[in-house]
């Protein structure tokens, strides 16, 4: 029994530490890639090519003074970033990195991920509410309404992928793509899912609620030091989760692109990492390339465009699969 828990804790540590390192270096990668797209260099002072920049940033945030506003509800105020960070970590429990390389091989993995992303809204609302500041409250309401609107289209796209798979198990979703990746028949859905993921994680061009120039960083305006750092880390970890979801559902997870023998010598984790990196690059690319959506344009996109489209795709795909007896 103790051996079981010991191996479990070891697995969790092996999962968490590279994840935190990945998040830290994603922050650096974003700054460097954004800089390259804007024809300048990003941070390159701290280490060679700025490698130690995230460590310097983390150290700076740790030694800052944690300001607890006098009119804030302290318990909820401190709990909100903890909740956000916790949810972004816990979502990693069901993501398979390779064949059998998953912390908890849940048979309802998809439903679990959907539930975790729906709970993420709580962190934002409690942050804005407990700050007891009008700007924070307004920013958190807008951010929460945006996240919630794009949850629906994410759910419907998940249903379409589920139809082609026949099981909620995420490893099964990847194994169902051994014949053909789902991005080939469902590439409009890949585009829609990518857009919904951008909006879900409050990333540009949908980052009006937290844009630097707009609502003064929205719901985390009253947070300093580690509270802010936890929100930040949670947002980037969420970004990596969404990137992994895109690869798991559409790009074939750990499977190599073509069924050559040589490709199978390369371990599946490498393919998974490559695809997630591609999606993270696309996240950063979209941030550099597109102007921000206004809030009503954003909500119009979520409700009037993506929801009917994804619903139509559910009906279309289920019809095709059922009529040709292609169901799993």
């Amino acid at each position: 029994m103790t051996f079981f828990f010991l191996t479990l804790v070891l697995k969790i540590v092996v999962l968490t530490i590279p994840l935190l390192l990945g998040v830290a270096f994603l922050v650096l990668a974003e700054r460097k890639v954004l800089a390259s797209m804007q024809r300048r260099k990003g941070p390159n002072v701290v280490g060679i090519f700025g490698i130690f920049q995230p460590i310097a940033d983390g150290l700076k945030l740790v030694v800052k003074e944690p300001v607890l506003p006098s009119s804030a509800n302290l318990v909820i105020f401190l709990f909100a970033p903890v909740l956000t960070f916790l949810l972004s970590q816990v979502a990693w429990a069901v993501i398979p990195f390779g064949d059998g390389l998953v912390l908890a091989d849940l048979n309802v993995g998809l439903l679990y991920l959907f539930a975790v992303s729906s709970l993420g809204v709580y962190g934002i609302i409690t942050a804005g509410w407990s700050s007891n500041s009008k700007y924070a409250f307004l920013g958190s309401l807008r951010s929460a309404a945006q996240m919630v609107s794009y949850e629906v289209s994410i759910g419907l796209i998940l249903i379409t992928v589920l139809l082609c798979t026949g099981s909620l198990n995420l490893s099964e979703v990847v194994r169902a793509q051994t014949h053909v990746w789902f991005c080939v028949p469902l590439f409009p859905l890949l585009v829609m899912f990518f857009i919904s993921c951008l909006a879900e994680t409050n990333r540009a061009p949908f980052d009006l609620p937290e844009a630097e120039a707009e609502l003064v960083a929205g719901y985390n305006v009253e947070y300093s030091s580690m509270g802010f750092a936890l929100f930040f880390l949670g947002e980037y970890a969420n970004m990596i989760v969404m990137g992994s979801l895109c690869t798991l559902f559409f790009l074939g997870g750990w499977l190599p692109p073509f069924d050559f023998v040589a490709f199978h010598w390369i371990p599946g984790i490498f393919w998974f990492g490559l695809k997630v990196t591609f999606f993270l690059f696309c996240f950063i690319w979209v941030r550099a390339a597109f102007p921000r959506y206004r809030y009503d344009q954003l909500m119009r996109l979520g409700w009037k465009v993506l929801l009917p489209l994804s619903l139509a795709w559910v009906v279309l795909v289920s019809g095709i699969l059922l009529s040709f007896d292609y169901l799993p």
Binding site: I12, V82, Q89, L103, D105
Partner: peptide, 25 residues
């Protein structure tokens, strides 16, 4: 039984986040 890793992971992440906030204090 498949949910045991998730419960342990929850507890460990909670501890990690609380430690991170505590460090700043």
């Amino acid at each position: 039984m498949e949910f045991a890793p998730i419960c342990v992971y929850l507890v460990i992440s909670l501890l990690l986040s609380l430690i991170l906030i505590g460090v700043s204090f």
